[in-house]
């Protein structure tokens, strides 16, 4: 086994991890701030891919699809929060879970009715077709772009949460919404925005995955499971946890694929089990939460 192959494998793992991070991020933010386990996350990922594809073909440019789909689907997410999820705050955690679970079925079935149950081609943007020579092997340009974009999104998110006044309110709201209300902050608006952000991130993941996988109504099912595994490993509600766990899972899958390829899917669940045995709250989770 030569070194260049292992380096290539490491790279594939990071690229895979980048997609996992972006999908887990929305899930963990919504849980961390709102205490809502969004089971429709995978379906909204799928909606994002379809929206991106539709907008890209409408405008003739992948880039408009990439920009507009997360915004529009995020707005749709806010509508979901405003009309449905909002009514269930303060109840047990399984109420919004059931609601979003049902919603995911409706969304998948809706897409089947509108776009059909067959896969639809989502062409890679022409600027990103082809491979780059990394010195140790060739790697698709598009996947490099995904790594870079996810890094930028993470940076923006971090700056927003840590360095702005809005971020301060959001973080405080996650700790103690009651006090925030007393201090005169309309926490309902904050939650609306956070839910929209979470859904928008799911949609962004969907658009990014489009040119790598076939776009079909069931594409979110597996993604939901993966996002949950990453979120649980990282610690429910922890953004840093989602990033670290996403990359960890990606690299683990990739390394296992090299030595025992048929175990490539199982390994992520094994990793989750191992982490939970040692740290039941996940790597970066807070004790007593979740």
């Amino acid at each position: 086994m030569d070194l260049s192959l292992i380096i290539m494998q490491l790279f594939s793992g990071i690229a895979l991890g980048a997609v996992l991070v972006i999908t887990a991020l929305g899930l963990t933010i919504v849980f961390g701030m709102l205490g809502v386990v969004n089971f429709a996350h995978g379906a909204l990922f799928m909606i994002g891919a379809y929206a991106g594809l539709y907008l890209a073909s409408l405008t003739g440019s992948f880039w408009w699809g990439l920009l507009l789909a997360p915004v529009l689907v995020g707005a749709f997410g806010m509508l979901i929060e405003f009309v449905l999820v909002r009514r269930l705050y303060g109840r047990s955690i399984d109420d919004p879970l059931l609601l979003t679970f049902g919603l995911s079925y409706i969304l998948v079935e809706g897409v089947r009715i509108v776009f059909g149950s067959d896969g639809i081609p989502f062409p890679t943007p022409s600027q990103l077709i082809g491979v780059v020579d990394l010195g140790v092997g060739f790697f698709p340009k598009y996947r490099l772009f995904v790594i870079a974009l996810v890094a930028v999104v993470l940076l923006v998110l971090w700056l927003m949460l840590e360095k702005t006044r809005v971020g301060l309110i959001v973080r405080a709201g996650a700790r103690d919404p009651q006090i925030m209300r007393v201090l005169g902050v309309d926490i309902g608006k904050v939650w609306l925005a956070i839910f929209g952000l979470g859904v928008g991130l799911a949609a962004l993941g969907g658009v990014l995955a489009g040119p790598m996988r076939s776009v079909n109504p069931e594409m979110g099912t597996l993604v939901l499971a993966e996002a949950f595994v990453v979120t649980v490993i990282g610690g429910l509600g922890s953004i840093v946890g989602a990033v670290v766990a996403g990359l960890m899972v990606g690299i683990c899958i990739s390394m296992v694929a090299l030595f025992a390829p048929e175990m490539a899917t199982i390994v992520m669940f094994a990793l989750m089990a191992a982490v939970l045995l040692v740290r039941p709250q996940g790597l970066f989770g807070l004790k007593g939460r979740a």
Binding site: S12, L16, A257, T265
Partner: peptide
């Protein structure tokens, strides 16, 4: 011969080995 899990969505991790 590389066996991949049934129903996998991502095959990128098998590609470097196949090319080598």
């Amino acid at each position: 011969e590389i066996l991949h899990p049934f129903g996998a969505a991502d095959y990128s991790t098998f590609m470097p080995r196949l090319m080598s």
